[in-house]
Amino acid sequence: MVEFWVNVFLVALLVVITFYIIRLKTLIAIVALSGAYSLTAAAIFVNLDAVDVAFTEAAVGSGISTILFLAALRYLPLEEAHQTRYPRLSLSLCIIVGLMLIIAAFELPNFGDPNAPAHLHVAPRYIEESYPLFHIPNVVTNVLASYRGFDTLGEVVVVFTAGLGVITLLAGSTLSMRFVKIENDLDKTNKTSKEDA
Protein backbone atom coordinates (compact mmCIF):
# COMPACT_ATOMS: atom_id res chain seq x y z
CA MET A 1 0.00 0.00 0.00
CA VAL A 2 2.85 2.39 0.83
CA GLU A 3 4.39 1.65 -2.54
CA PHE A 4 1.15 2.57 -4.24
CA TRP A 5 0.79 5.95 -2.52
CA VAL A 6 4.46 6.80 -3.05
CA ASN A 7 3.92 6.06 -6.71
CA VAL A 8 0.83 8.28 -6.88
CA PHE A 9 2.71 11.13 -5.21
CA LEU A 10 5.82 10.88 -7.40
CA VAL A 11 3.85 10.73 -10.63
CA ALA A 12 1.85 13.77 -9.52
CA LEU A 13 5.16 15.53 -8.85
CA LEU A 14 6.18 14.81 -12.43
CA VAL A 15 3.00 16.44 -13.70
CA VAL A 16 3.71 19.54 -11.58
CA ILE A 17 7.29 19.75 -12.89
CA THR A 18 6.03 19.48 -16.46
CA PHE A 19 3.52 22.27 -15.83
CA TYR A 20 6.35 24.55 -14.71
CA ILE A 21 8.44 23.57 -17.74
CA ILE A 22 5.56 24.73 -19.94
CA ARG A 23 5.19 28.02 -18.06
CA LEU A 24 8.85 29.07 -17.78
CA LYS A 25 10.71 31.11 -20.39
CA THR A 26 14.29 30.99 -19.06
CA LEU A 27 16.10 28.16 -20.78
CA ILE A 28 18.53 27.41 -17.92
CA ALA A 29 15.59 26.95 -15.56
CA ILE A 30 13.90 24.67 -18.08
CA VAL A 31 17.03 22.54 -18.38
CA ALA A 32 17.41 22.34 -14.60
CA LEU A 33 13.76 21.31 -14.28
CA SER A 34 14.21 18.62 -16.90
CA GLY A 35 17.07 17.28 -14.78
CA ALA A 36 14.73 17.23 -11.79
CA TYR A 37 12.15 15.49 -13.98
CA SER A 38 14.63 12.73 -14.81
CA LEU A 39 15.58 12.27 -11.17
CA THR A 40 11.92 11.97 -10.16
CA ALA A 41 11.40 9.48 -12.98
CA ALA A 42 14.33 7.48 -11.60
CA ALA A 43 12.66 7.42 -8.18
CA ILE A 44 9.46 6.17 -9.84
CA PHE A 45 11.40 3.41 -11.56
CA VAL A 46 12.88 2.26 -8.23
CA ASN A 47 9.39 2.17 -6.77
CA LEU A 48 8.13 0.13 -9.73
CA ASP A 49 10.90 -2.49 -9.23
CA ALA A 50 12.91 -1.46 -12.28
CA VAL A 51 16.24 -0.95 -10.51
CA ASP A 52 18.39 -1.25 -13.62
CA VAL A 53 16.29 1.31 -15.46
CA ALA A 54 16.39 3.65 -12.47
CA PHE A 55 20.16 3.38 -12.36
CA THR A 56 20.42 4.28 -16.03
CA GLU A 57 17.91 7.11 -15.82
CA ALA A 58 19.67 8.64 -12.80
CA ALA A 59 23.09 8.46 -14.47
CA VAL A 60 22.15 9.29 -18.05
CA GLY A 61 18.94 11.30 -17.87
CA SER A 62 19.69 13.60 -14.98
CA GLY A 63 23.49 13.55 -15.22
CA ILE A 64 24.86 13.48 -18.74
CA SER A 65 21.78 14.89 -20.46
CA THR A 66 21.64 17.97 -18.22
CA ILE A 67 25.36 18.58 -18.66
CA LEU A 68 25.04 18.34 -22.45
CA PHE A 69 22.13 20.79 -22.47
CA LEU A 70 24.06 23.24 -20.27
CA ALA A 71 27.16 22.88 -22.46
CA ALA A 72 25.06 23.62 -25.54
CA LEU A 73 23.42 26.63 -23.86
CA ARG A 74 26.87 28.27 -23.69
CA TYR A 75 26.54 29.04 -27.39
CA LEU A 76 22.82 29.83 -27.47
CA PRO A 77 20.58 32.72 -26.43
CA LEU A 78 19.28 32.11 -22.92
CA GLU A 79 15.73 33.43 -23.24
CA GLU A 80 12.81 32.34 -25.30
CA ALA A 81 12.12 35.26 -27.62
CA HIS A 82 8.73 34.65 -29.14
CA GLN A 83 5.27 33.84 -27.84
CA THR A 84 3.80 30.41 -28.32
CA ARG A 85 2.25 29.81 -31.69
CA TYR A 86 -1.51 29.01 -31.93
CA PRO A 87 -1.71 28.21 -28.18
CA ARG A 88 -5.47 27.62 -28.14
CA LEU A 89 -5.50 25.42 -31.22
CA SER A 90 -2.63 23.22 -30.07
CA LEU A 91 -3.96 23.07 -26.50
CA SER A 92 -7.38 21.91 -27.68
CA LEU A 93 -5.74 19.38 -30.02
CA CYS A 94 -3.69 17.97 -27.13
CA ILE A 95 -6.72 17.85 -24.83
CA ILE A 96 -8.83 16.01 -27.43
CA VAL A 97 -6.09 13.46 -28.18
CA GLY A 98 -5.39 13.07 -24.46
CA LEU A 99 -9.06 12.45 -23.63
CA MET A 100 -9.28 9.83 -26.34
CA LEU A 101 -6.14 8.12 -25.03
CA ILE A 102 -7.43 8.25 -21.43
CA ILE A 103 -10.70 6.62 -22.47
CA ALA A 104 -8.65 3.94 -24.19
CA ALA A 105 -6.43 3.60 -21.11
CA PHE A 106 -9.38 2.45 -18.96
CA GLU A 107 -9.47 -0.67 -21.12
CA LEU A 108 -5.91 -1.56 -20.08
CA PRO A 109 -5.41 -4.24 -17.42
CA ASN A 110 -5.36 -2.76 -13.92
CA PHE A 111 -2.10 -1.37 -12.58
CA GLY A 112 -0.10 -4.23 -11.04
CA ASP A 113 -2.53 -6.95 -12.11
CA PRO A 114 -0.54 -10.24 -12.01
CA ASN A 115 -2.85 -11.85 -14.58
CA ALA A 116 -2.30 -9.21 -17.26
CA PRO A 117 -1.52 -10.79 -20.65
CA ALA A 118 1.94 -9.21 -20.67
CA HIS A 119 2.99 -11.26 -17.63
CA LEU A 120 1.72 -14.61 -18.85
CA HIS A 121 3.79 -15.51 -21.87
CA VAL A 122 7.45 -14.57 -22.26
CA ALA A 123 8.42 -13.19 -18.86
CA PRO A 124 7.71 -16.35 -16.78
CA ARG A 125 9.92 -18.31 -19.12
CA TYR A 126 12.77 -15.85 -18.64
CA ILE A 127 12.38 -15.95 -14.86
CA GLU A 128 12.08 -19.74 -14.51
CA GLU A 129 14.52 -20.80 -17.19
CA SER A 130 17.37 -18.34 -16.88
CA TYR A 131 18.92 -19.43 -13.57
CA PRO A 132 19.33 -23.13 -14.47
CA LEU A 133 20.76 -22.11 -17.85
CA PHE A 134 22.97 -19.16 -16.90
CA HIS A 135 23.60 -19.28 -13.12
CA ILE A 136 23.19 -15.49 -13.19
CA PRO A 137 20.61 -14.02 -10.81
CA ASN A 138 19.98 -10.73 -12.62
CA VAL A 139 17.34 -11.58 -15.21
CA VAL A 140 17.63 -8.17 -16.88
CA THR A 141 21.29 -8.79 -17.74
CA ASN A 142 20.46 -12.25 -19.10
CA VAL A 143 17.74 -10.96 -21.35
CA LEU A 144 19.76 -7.92 -22.39
CA ALA A 145 22.95 -9.70 -23.35
CA SER A 146 21.88 -13.20 -24.26
CA TYR A 147 18.19 -13.68 -25.11
CA ARG A 148 17.99 -10.35 -26.91
CA GLY A 149 21.59 -9.85 -27.93
CA PHE A 150 20.58 -8.72 -31.43
CA ASP A 151 18.42 -5.99 -29.99
CA THR A 152 21.24 -4.71 -27.79
CA LEU A 153 23.71 -4.86 -30.69
CA GLY A 154 21.35 -2.66 -32.69
CA GLU A 155 21.01 -0.19 -29.83
CA VAL A 156 24.78 0.01 -29.38
CA VAL A 157 25.15 0.71 -33.09
CA VAL A 158 22.54 3.48 -32.79
CA VAL A 159 24.44 5.05 -29.87
CA PHE A 160 27.68 4.79 -31.88
CA THR A 161 26.09 6.41 -34.92
CA ALA A 162 24.59 9.24 -32.88
CA GLY A 163 28.00 9.87 -31.31
CA LEU A 164 29.63 9.94 -34.73
CA GLY A 165 26.94 12.34 -35.94
CA VAL A 166 27.54 14.78 -33.09
CA ILE A 167 31.30 14.63 -33.55
CA THR A 168 31.02 15.27 -37.29
CA LEU A 169 28.57 18.11 -36.71
CA LEU A 170 30.50 19.93 -33.99
CA ALA A 171 34.15 18.91 -34.22
CA GLY A 172 34.07 19.00 -38.02
CA SER A 173 34.44 22.78 -38.03
CA THR A 174 38.19 22.58 -38.62
CA LEU A 175 37.57 20.58 -41.79
CA SER A 176 35.01 23.02 -43.17
CA MET A 177 37.37 25.89 -42.32
CA ARG A 178 40.00 24.16 -44.42
CA PHE A 179 37.56 23.93 -47.32
CA VAL A 180 36.73 27.63 -47.05
CA LYS A 181 40.44 28.37 -47.06
CA ILE A 182 40.99 26.20 -50.14
CA GLU A 183 38.13 27.99 -51.93
CA ASN A 184 39.61 31.37 -51.04
CA ASP A 185 43.02 30.30 -52.33
CA LEU A 186 41.41 29.08 -55.55
CA ASP A 187 39.63 32.40 -55.98
CA LYS A 188 42.88 34.30 -55.45
CA THR A 189 44.80 32.17 -57.96
CA ASN A 190 41.98 32.60 -60.48
CA LYS A 191 42.09 36.37 -60.04
CA THR A 192 45.87 36.52 -60.37
CA SER A 193 45.81 34.30 -63.45
CA LYS A 194 43.17 36.55 -65.04
CA GLU A 195 45.27 39.61 -64.27
CA ASP A 196 48.30 37.92 -65.80
CA ALA A 197 46.35 37.15 -68.93
Binding site: A145, A162, V166, L170
Partner: peptide
Protein backbone atom coordinates in the same frame (compact mmCIF):
# COMPACT_ATOMS: atom_id res chain seq x y z
CA UNK B 1 29.72 -14.38 -23.52
CA UNK B 2 27.67 -11.99 -21.40
CA UNK B 3 30.78 -10.49 -19.80
CA UNK B 4 32.45 -9.93 -23.18
CA UNK B 5 29.33 -8.42 -24.72
CA UNK B 6 28.75 -6.14 -21.72
CA UNK B 7 32.37 -5.00 -22.01
CA UNK B 8 31.72 -4.00 -25.61
CA UNK B 9 28.59 -2.10 -24.59
CA UNK B 10 30.45 -0.37 -21.76
CA UNK B 11 33.33 0.71 -24.00
CA UNK B 12 31.04 2.19 -26.64
CA UNK B 13 28.77 3.98 -24.20
CA UNK B 14 31.74 5.39 -22.26
CA UNK B 15 33.42 6.68 -25.40
CA UNK B 16 30.23 8.10 -26.90
CA UNK B 17 29.24 9.94 -23.72
CA UNK B 18 32.72 11.41 -23.29
CA UNK B 19 32.90 12.20 -27.01
CA UNK B 20 29.59 14.06 -26.80
CA UNK B 21 30.90 16.12 -23.90
CA UNK B 22 34.17 16.87 -25.72
CA UNK B 23 32.26 17.90 -28.84
CA UNK B 24 29.96 20.29 -26.97
CA UNK B 25 32.52 21.69 -24.53
Amino acid sequence: GIIIVELGVGLTVFAVMLGLFYAFA
